Simulated assay, not measured.
Amino acid sequence: MSKKILAFIITLSASFVYAQTVPDSLSINPQNQQNAAQRILSGNINTGVTVGGYGEITYNQPEADNGELDVQRLVLLFGYKFNDKVQFVTEIELEHVEEVFVEQAFLQYSLNDNVNLRGGLMLVPMGIVNEYHEPTTFNGVERPSIDGSIVPTTWREIGFGVSGRFDEVSLRYQAYIFNGFSSVNGTKVLGGKNGLRNGRQKGIRSTVDSPNFSAKLDFYGLPGLRLGLSGYFGRTQAEDDVEDIDGTSVGISMVGFDARYAYQRFTARGQFIHASISDTEDYNNLNVADLGSALQGYYVEAAYNLLPLTKQQQLFAFARYEDFDTHASVDGGLMRNDSYDRNEWTFGLSYKVAPGAVVKADYQIKDNAAGSDVPNQLNIGLGVWF
């Protein structure tokens, strides 16, 4: 019996090694970029298990305040290929050493080379970082602030839909029906500072009373350039016993445009997001909240590899400017809060020491329209993806 168990363990370990994904984080061409789930789905194994992971350890030091060291996240990736048409992908995330979440868990059925049916817990395709947030795929120790306050990353919900690509016209598409944000998530309400972030249900006993629609198109027909157009439309979710009361839900119409470009040692990216929120006056009165009727923001970033292209390692110096406002407009008697109209400069270095391993450092200069004192911040981090 012990020999059989040993043989089983050796066989299983060998299959894991064979099935591990090959890191491609040093590929700077946005036309070829894949996230963790896409890399698992495109693996070249016939059947069996694929394993991988990514993680970040960060140090954040605001001016004149205590610094913080954190194992910010460790994500374990698992995929299983049943046959040429059916695959399952999941991500198990451990945040700050003590919290455990399922970030993705979906089943994909491939009808043909261009059409894939999906169902389960999936990322909402909005902007860049919500889908491509592995630490070796973006500059900066922290993700862009817009992708925390407006999008909000990591944004995932339960749903079903279709995805695929048509290489003859250089177009990738996604379209899904999701459950939406919770109008009131436990004791948390939607509000001005973080917009819709408190409403993410994350597949945790999610309330659903009306479907939400999400779609994205990516065009990659020009050398080195990738363009994305995203949309999300629907309403927040309220419990059945109160859903007919004015203010128990709000309508959401969110659109986004993003662009990524790479040429030799130069890369650039940018993103614009606008969300219109309806029925906020009733919602704020009912829930004693300060949710704005419009959220809007953008960022632009440029980076340059200081090392020769002949080197496997890369050292990117980058600068990013962000401008975002979670009170871009307000309804009713709500007063606009200028401290929610924020801008940030981030300057830093990303040293990619090997495929799938990066050391980062940056400095952030923060401000807002109210002129209130916002501390600047030094960030240092380690990131891996394998």
Rank of each mutant, 00 (worst) to 15 (best):
V189H: 00
V49G: 12
G55T: 07
Q104R: 06
T280V: 00
G356E: 05
V384I: 12
V89R: 03
Q108K: 15
F178D: 00
P135A: 06
W345V: 04
V353R: 03
Y232K: 06
Y232L: 03
P355H: 06
T187W: 02
E63T: 15
Y232F: 14
S329E: 04
Q87G: 13
A37H: 09
I5E: 06
S2L: 12
Y283S: 07
A289P: 14
A275Q: 13
A64S: 12
S249K: 04
K85I: 09
V374C: 03
Q61I: 05
I57D: 00
L121Q: 10
N194G: 08
G270P: 11
V169H: 03
N112S: 12
V358K: 08
N66P: 07
Y18R: 13
V242N: 06
G195L: 07
A105G: 07
I177C: 10
G371Q: 04
S15Q: 12
F347S: 13
F181A: 01
F166S: 10
V255A: 09
T346H: 09
F318S: 00
Y340G: 14
F386V: 09
Y299H: 12
Y80M: 06
G52D: 09
P152G: 14
V115R: 11
V100E: 01
N179P: 00
D241G: 09
D70C: 01
N139R: 10
Q34G: 14
N343K: 06
T11W: 10
W385R: 11
V22D: 00
A7I: 08
